[in-house]
Design a protein around this nucleic acid. Structure first.
Lengths: 353, 353
DNA sequence: CTGTTAGCGCTTTCAC
DNA sequence: GTGAAAGCGCTAACAG
């Protein structure tokens, strides 16, 4: 366990400190500090000299010390639930990368935490913030009535949610207009002659799931198709739930010709199950997803989906959180982004039943 | 942009400090500190009292201050290249989550950084460490001759790589024995009567890609099958490269009946392309992947693959990095883990050609 | 323009 | 067992 310690490695690497640079240039610490931070009240000549020696000494300011002094961390926390890994993994991973990149652009770090037990989740948020490890949070997978939001709001902790909640009026959020998207999707399918359109829903506890269903109903209404509760199957954003949903649909001998899925993973699951049962997609059955993950394009058949940009979402969130940490009112940061239909080959004209 | 500032929110949340707790209990700061950290030289009675009031006051030690004092951050950095997002996204995301969870178990945070331009990559590692934001790193996707490794080693920065390199002898690493795995895979396919087995390789710059090819060759030799360079197609771990590879194979009218892919994404791409070309998998063509990503199970047909556990890998890395930061010699931490064949339905007996 | 003095919140000496 | 003093490396506030 302990191992022989190579002396060269054990000793922490010697990092130059402000004081050392200061004495090297023959100036006082604060002067050097201000020169390095480009304060206007330092002569250009001094700045140049200071920068040169600092550079030469390989000096990099300790963010630990700076943080302590400034009271900020320049890090944002993202807490993911390890329970959800692999389910909506594709989207989550695209989003996380985009977010990390975007935050980086604003000089912020992303602190990633994984929590196994949902019960300790709030605790994690609390600890992370109290310890001063992060200046704020980004929340994913918001629930209709989300405890985390109440908790953070009460304490005045800056945060942005990706997804609305019942308390949306009072916090900063960004969301995709999935309701409109699903309504449009139904219209899109109806225009292809589909009259019996099923939906495999997402995890009930996530608010967005209900919005997607609402959009589905709205789309049916617009298209003049009667809503049939039997055509809405439960799901949880996983591919497995897509497979299961499809089987149920087949078993129940409904004359469904198209299925709208809560996300791409579910759609891929549904398609793979359909194919295994000898159902041709899209000839006999059209399937549509949501999210527009990269993988969807490579699926067979390539998935028709409602796409929105994880990159843009990350970018926006980064700006929002910067604003919030800077003191903006949460209500100044609420954005609804559209999704757009990407037609590929998992959907087609309705088969004549 | 600026927004009206709600006063209640602008002011940073008041956090209790050590000094406050101390004066509340009527003891000195150091005493309270030691009590909270369970030092043996503090009376149980005092500890109890201190803990009670600290709890009551909602006191949580500022890790910023503690870090400054102790010289450590308790955070590990993971730098991902935004260029690779979506390619090997599935595995990367599973691994990242697993790592975050495992580090958490050791009281470490994961600092995720995304770098767009590979040129600035080294710079990012340097800055992160110099600034004192992380105590060490985990590196993914190691290259045969990896500049990052030379850089970090020279400076004595603790790090663990996921994957070997040419310099493996001198650094801490964990890796999957992909060579043996691919050799086994060839044996597995040969046993099913396949005599013409192709391979769609991974990104050449990644060391592991060459090991996978070496395993493939080794397997052929064991099975008594002649190696044919035309059957090794270039790829880059993406589904797209799987599609492309398959098309090339079909065009070149080789009589291939089985394809081994560098990873699951490539395999899924190859299968989807095959299906589109009217090739039945597995009846006419067997396809096998590597990694054992969750999604593979839900694919159609479910993917036969070489599986290894991202969770175990994360867990091991976490222990390793803890050891390294504690002063262990890097060479004490080198682990090779096996992969195992998971037979599903993308492979079958060779068709009679 | 630059230097001096303080202090962020904690932990580690070292006395008592 | 507990307290007093010092300092981690930086920046803000005030002098000069």
């Amino acid at each position: 366990m302990s191992g022989k310690v190579t002396d060269a490695l054990k000793g922490k690497v010697k990092r130059a400190t402000l004081a050392e640079v200061a004495s090297a240039v023959g100036l006082a610490k604060p002067t050097v500090s201000r020169a390095l931070n480009d304060y206007p009240d330092i002569s250009d000549e001094t700045k140049r000299r200071v920068r040169e020696t600092a550079e030469a000494m390989g000096y990099v300011a300790s963010s630990r010390a700076r943080q302590l002094q400034k009271g900020a961390t320049d890090a944002i926390g993202l807490v993911i639930s390890s329970a959800s890994v692999g389910l909506q993994a594709a989207y989550q991973s695209e989003f996380t990368s985009a977010l990390a990149a975007a935050l980086d652009g604003h000089g912020l770090d992303l602190l990633l935490h994984s929590v196994a037990d949902p019960v300790t989740e709030i605790d994690t948020y609390n600890r992370l913030f109290q310890q001063g490890k992060v200046d704020g949070f980004v929340l994913m997978r918001t629930r209709r009535d989300d405890e985390r939001i109440r908790f953070l709001t009460e304490r005045g902790v800056p945060f942005v949610t990706q997804g609305r909640t019942d308390q949306s009026a009072e916090h900063a959020w960004i969301d995709i207009d999935s309701q409109t998207a699903f309504s449009d999707a139904v219209g899109f399918l109806a225009a292809k002659g589909h009259g019996r359109i099923a939906m495999i829903a997402g995890d009930e506890t996530i608010y967005s799931s209900s919005l997607r269903i609402a959009g589905y109903r709205q789309g049916l209404e617009k298209a003049g198709i009667a809503f049939d509760a039997d055509l809405v199957l439960p799901g949880d954003f996983s591919a497995a739930s897509g497979r299961l949903g499809l089987r149920r649909l087949v078993d129940s001998t409904t004359d469904v010709t198209a299925i709208l899925c809560a996300n791409d993973a579910t759609a891929m699951g549904a398609i793979s199950q359909a194919v295994e049962l000898g159902i041709d997609v899209p000839k006999q059955l059209s399937v549509m997803g949501y999210d527009g993950v990269r993988m969807a394009e490579m699926f067979s058949p390539p998935l028709t989906t409602l796409s929105h940009s994880a990159a843009e979402c990350g970018e926006r969130i980064a700006s929002m959180i910067v604003g919030l940490v800077g003191g903006d009112a949460p209500t100044d940061h609420q954005i609804l982004l559209p999704a757009q239909i990407i037609e590929r080959r998992s959907t087609g004209m309705a088969a004549n039943v």
